[in-house]
Every structure is written in C-alpha cells, then in structure tokens.
C-alpha cells in the first residue's frame, strides 16, 4: 500500500475562446509550466485562501505543458485534488489573456496518465497539424518524448 496518493489531471487549455474557436490562429502568449502554475495558484488563493493554498501546495505541480496542442498535466495530492481542480475551473485568465481549462482525464497513476496523454496528444495534433510549421512539428515530437520519459 502506498500511503500518499496523487492525482494526475490531464487538462486542455482553450486560449481566448471568444476570438478563435478551435485554435486556428496563432496565440499571442506561450503556455509554460510557470505561467500555468501561477494562474492556478492565484485562483487557489482567491477561492480557498492561504490555508487552502498551503495544504494543496505540498504536492501541487504542473508537470507538463505542451504549447502546441495546449495540453497540460497537473499533479495534486488526492485529498486536495478537487480543490485544485475547481480552482482551475475558476481560472479565467492567464496573465491578461482569457482562457478556459477543460479536464480531459483524471488518473491515479503515472502510467495510465501517460497512455491517455499520448492518445490525446495524437488526436489533438491531428486536429491542428495542418497549420503548423516544420519547427513546431519538431517541437511537438520533443514533447512526446518528454511524456514518455515522465516520472511522477
């Protein structure tokens, strides 16, 4: 038995949903683990206060962000994952840029998380592959490598 349990949430980010539907255009901001984490932490602080932030911060981490397909994986402890999740739902902007977080999948272990993430990456990439340059495609394959090597 493992005493401490994590939850991995595979999220999808819609950047500026009002303007472009389905991410056809180039976005003015680049998603990074850092700005995603900042936005989520802010939201936790606003909604659940310092205590909520403190309790969830122990395990909270943005493990992976793909700026091309706009998928990200967020880790949280099992006790607080609903708090973190609802805080993410309540996020309205990263920086000053309006976004929507949408949960695709939630898993309890890394392996299944990897599998679903790869599957989703593939499908999302197919959706937006037409408008991508060579450079971005190379970047995307790097991201896929990163998922495959990804540990807790």
């Amino acid at each position: 038995m493992v005493g401490f349990k994590n939850r991995f949430m595979l999220m999808e980010v819609f950047l500026d949903p009002d303007k472009d539907l389905l991410g056809g255009e180039k976005s003015p901001i680049i998603l990074t683990p850092f700005n995603v984490a900042e936005a989520i932490k802010d939201s936790i602080r606003i909604n659940f206060g310092e205590c909520g932030l403190g309790s969830s911060l122990g395990s909270f981490d943005v493990k992976y962000v793909n700026e091309i397909t706009k998928l990200c994986i967020v880790r949280s402890s099992r006790e607080d994952h609903r708090q973190v999740w609802s805080a993410m739902t309540l996020v309205k902007s990263i920086g000053n840029y309006p976004v929507i977080f949408n949960l695709l999948d939630i898993t309890g272990c890394v392996r299944t998380c990897k599998e679903t993430a790869l599957k989703c990456e593939k499908e999302k990439f197919e959706q937006c592959s037409k408008s991508l340059s060579e450079d971005e495609k190379r970047k995307h394959s790097n991201y896929l490598e990163r998922i495959k090597n990804f540990k807790t």
Binding site: D16, P17, M88, K92, I100, L103
Partner: peptide, 9 residues
C-alpha cells in the same frame, strides 16, 4: 464563450 465549462468541470 469564456464562461462555458466542460461537463466534468
């Protein structure tokens, strides 16, 4: 549109 959320959320 930015106030819509997915069913899971």
């Amino acid at each position: 549109v930015s106030e819509l959320r997915g069913p899971n959320d």
